[in-house]
Design a protein around this nucleic acid. Structure first.
Lengths: 245, 245
DNA sequence: CGTGGACTTGATCAGCGTCAACCCTCGTGG
DNA sequence: CCACGAGGGTTGACGCTGATCAAGTCCACG
């Protein structure tokens, strides 16, 4: 259990953001080579979390955002009334915690879906740094506004789409994100449980299960537990066109 | 139609953000008196839009965010497939357009729900200015992360709440926001049509109508068209407690 | 005073949630 | 090595919430 296993892809020991294999997805893409040293001083690289462990928890003091380095993370918010909503799934190169920047406490929790490593970005230091590196401030504005848009897309999906469309959207989103990470877009492992998918998409677990088997029988994908194969990207896309107009 | 009517509350001619009656809600709260002049140079104050007019439109070149000065604004996104989702209602002192900061084009549209005036904030200038005024950059980070959280709350509402809970949430949100603006929290006018409410909350217009009349018959509010009176804040709040635990 | 859009009300219907049973997989321990 | 149990996943039957369709009313406007 507590054994130390080197993270795969040998990410673990990379001494600088500069040499990280994710440098074209992550913060480094906003920082010139000359300023990279400054970034390295601020970022704490490579903490590892096991499946189920929390990177941070709602209502604890806010310190840092985190860049996902390997694995996969889910973020969620919980209301006083006990409703629980997963707000996103994050893959390597993506940043979590941006929704808490304005507060003293984390606005939500982040849990590792599988053994994952993350890089800590202490935000007080980063904020100072971004006074000196204009492109960095600009990049954070971009990241956050992108995050707002993702939320809007999610809202749209939750209020207007059918169960099939929701699942199709999720599969296509994962597919394209894996593709950007040089991984096969039509065959991958789902890092999250059916439960998580259901919660994220605002459906019941049973519905998720049913729709996925329906996809299977329609030849849109081969799905076995968490493994997805031969995704029919075209077919899924055509599900999203509402028959309007 | 083209007649010039002075905006109410005599906001129209205020020469500086400093003297604006919204200065404790809007950008000025992040700027010291000494720096206020710099802010004034950047902000274009007081353009007026009639009901139905667009402050900006999706897919047009992004230039500026806008602070609502009087009236009320709705923002929305439209997908390629023709789905249309209202993403928020904005009251005086609130900022619109933050979701587009990262892009060349506006990610959504903003439409005046009633005759409204807004102050334009050209973002290239503001971004430069925020290098020099640390509290301003910080404030924008805060605004944006608040906006992300609003989106998460909306997602939660759309995926977990019943029609009654959604309406109750909206009424309570408006109520508390009016209160912060020194207006009565239990009696106000709804600036938006039933259609807009329905779209925003992911319901059919008919459902909105039915639920509102049900509220009325339960004594939770007196609702007549767009006028809301004697809101029972306690009662509405108790609707939100899911009977869990 | 008349017209069109916003709003309400009623009847019907279906998508998806809920409840319940079952299965499959994998890790644990005898 | 196998038995067991627990958690995740699938499948089926049923009912409810809210969408849809269809009239009808109210109101603001010209």
């Amino acid at each position: 259990m507590g054994e130390r296993i080197p993270t795969r892809h040998s990410l673990a020991l990379s001494p600088s953001c500069n040499h990280c294999s994710l440098s074209n997805l992550c913060l480094p893409l906003a920082v010139s080579d000359g300023d990279m040293g400054r970034l390295d001083e601020v970022v704490n690289r490579g903490a590892v979390y096991d499946r189920g462990q929390a990177i941070f928890q709602q209502h604890t003091p806010f310190r840092s955002c985190y860049a996902v380095r390997s694995g996969a993370i889910k973020t969620s918010v919980e209301t006083a009334e006990g409703d629980y909503q997963i707000t996103g799934f994050y893959l390597p190169g993506e940043i979590i915690g941006l929704d808490s920047l304005h507060a003293e406490e984390y606005a939500g929790s982040a849990i590792a879906l599988e053994r994952s490593s993350v890089c800590e970005i202490p935000m007080d230091q980063l904020e100072s740094l971004s006074f000196e590196i204009p492109t960095l401030q600009h990049h954070f504005f971009q990241l956050m506004s992108q995050e707002i848009q993702n939320g809007q897309q999610l809202s749209l999906l939750l209020s207007r789409k059918t169960a099939e469309e929701r699942l199709a959207s999720l599969l296509l989103s994962l597919s394209s994100r894996y593709e950007r990470r040089q991984m096969p877009p039509t065959a991958f492992r789902l890092p999250m449980a059916r439960n998580d998918i259901a919660n994220f998409l605002g459906l019941a677990v049973e519905t998720v299960s049913r729709v996925l088997t329906r996809f299977q029988s329609q030849g849109l994908a081969t799905i076995n537990g968490r493994s997805v194969e031969s995704l029919d990207l075209e077919g899924l896309h055509s599900l999203l066109q509402s028959p309007g107009t």
